[in-house]
Design a protein around this nucleic acid. Structure first.
Lengths: 204, 204, 204, 204
DNA sequence: GATGAATGAGCCTTCATTCAT
DNA sequence: CATGAATGAAGGCTCATTCAT
């Protein structure tokens, strides 16, 4: 069993290695323009080896997507945990949400690629379900922060579920703009401003 | 010359016909999963005929993208023109922006597909530039509405460019959520709520 | 009947016009790389019109080939007729054979294209037969000149059929070299030298 | 390194196998009428496999051409080496030149196909250059033989470069005739006769 | 476990030919 | 007669996947 565990650990590590490579390539080229060859080269592995660790290109892609979301939620949770004040937590969530994808642009590009094919019904329904679930986790985090802030009187009482929807819509919108490179001036400033406006709405 | 005009008109009409078909197919299947055969069948044309009107699959796709944006801006402008009160105009812009893509989900799916490949540098730089320009037009419309409302005292004075960025980020975020089918409850309500909150920030 | 003749003349003239255009295009691009569109444009005609005058691309090509050979034989006969002395006739035949294709490089390129597909069995057997017949005519001309020169004692008696074969082989070889641009120095000199050597063999 | 060598050897052998198949098919059908599928079938390989060994149809064709020339020169050199007398060497060169292409008609057909497209500028300039270089090698061989024969007094002194041009023109002309199947009677006799005449010119 | 040669389904694109106007 | 839009068969090439070593 010790050996099996060792093997399993090795297996997980190799999957991780491939994931790292795949993340970069998928991000750069998108799902359809990425060749398994590319991933293999990036991972310094033989093409056939990929298939030992992932059943198919699609499964590899799904793994990348899932990991991205998990890392994102973990990062946000972590950022929130670093501060104590309810409003600081909210701000941390906002900023980390943007920062994470800013620091990990690969993830956002892969997400974009995911979106563009998620409507096709080709990707496992399961993946879509999982992604939605991860998103619900994220929204749950935000709702929690808002609820706490409201309970302690730092923001008005209100429908925090809808507020969380507002919050996440903002985040996603800002991210889309970043991805598309729509703003020419400083993203940071625009986003700070947007956050300020959002706060007003919570306190208005 | 009359004849030449007729020919040209015919040509434009045929392109339009193909565009309609392509829009549907691209929306349903995404760029890479769309076969020219599919488009041809949808348009009740021979495969080769498509190439008489569009140089390549890519050019056809670009045409679809461009038309989508143009129609969108036109629809928003039109919606604004239907009402007189500055705040009604703002609301109309907000609602029509969402409504347009709600009524024309094909467009949004095609956009998604565009986004996912626009990072590849494969699509004509020109297209990306054009899309950005169309987006600037849209932002310009919003800035105009906000400026007018501020001038007449219906909202606070403020940086309307940043506000427009906020507005469009909201729109895009909400659209992304719609596209991904993230909400389970009524989109309309969420969006109304989000709008209300946004207004607060303008008046706070 | 007068009218029919007129029509026929018109028809022939139009075919000639198309032939001229096709000759140029086939020469420049070869059979397979020539599009009917190209020929149509060169002839300032609609694509469909070509099919009114020629049943198919192949028939058009065959017509070009046939005309080329006919013109060649005519030119050689004509050159021979310009001079009186038997040896001058031989020299005229030699020189005109090279000169004709030098002045009408299009013809030689088309011929090359013809050779490369004549083995395919796709081109009408009839064409191949006709080409062989035209070649026999040419060889007949040479045999005639040689026979006459031998009878009058300007060259040794010998097998003039084989000598003609030698002569035409030389011509074709020199042409091939010209076509392939094999010599770097002056073609004219090399060919003159070759002719001199050939003469020696006739007189040796 | 031993292993690497083995791999390389395997690769070379497989390319050779494909080359053999391609030679036959190109010879029979010409470049444009040859489908990669045909070659694949002839080589008992999958279509995709061809592309593992050759980047494109064109590259495969070029390889065939190059090999043909190399084999030809090798065969001629070899034939010359088999005999000692200078005049025997010349005769061997003449006969082997014809014999090689007679025994390897595939090569000559492929050459014909090459000629017909070499004017198009589509084929790599490099190939054309290489072909010319191989031809120069061939001419060099002939010049060498002639020079030697002249030095030893078996033929007259003269411009051996031009004589070699004469020689190769004869060869090419005779080959063209063979290819086109122009003679009805025995090629061998005609060619022997032509050679005899050629000799006269060297000794005249 | 790892490799990369082999495979073939699949797709974009071309172009000879037709035919309605 | 003349035209050019329409057609679809055909072919080069790609790439996910497999499997013998």
């Amino acid at each position: 069993m010790a050996e099996e565990t060792t093997i399993s650990v090795k297996h997980v590590k190799k999957r991780r290695k491939i994931y790292k490579a795949a993340l970069k390539v998928f991000a750069k080229k998108g799902f359809h323009n990425t060749k398994m060859q590319d991933v293999a080269e990036k991972a310094s592995l033989g093409k056939g080896t990929l298939y030992w660790y992932f059943k198919s290109k699609e499964e590899l892609f799904q793994f990348v997507i899932r990991c991205g979301f998990a890392e994102f939620n973990e990062a946000v949770l972590n950022a929130i945990a670093q501060v104590n004040h309810p409003m600081a937590k909210l701000k941390a969530a906002f900023e980390e949400s943007l920062k994470f994808y800013f620091d990990n642009k690969d993830h956002i590009w892969v997400l974009t690629s995911f979106w563009s094919i998620s409507g096709l019904g080709k990707l496992n329904k399961r993946l879509r379900k999982e992604v939605n679930e991860e998103f619900e986790v994220y929204k749950g985090i935000i709702i929690g922060v808002l609820t706490n802030a409201a309970r302690l009187g730092f923001i008005n009482k209100g429908d925090n579920v809808k507020r969380a929807a507002h919050f996440t819509a903002l985040i996603d919108g800002l991210l889309v703009h970043r991805v598309l490179g729509i703003y020419v001036d400083d993203y940071g400033k625009v986003e700070a401003e947007v956050y300020k406006e959002f706060l007003k709405s919570l306190k208005g």
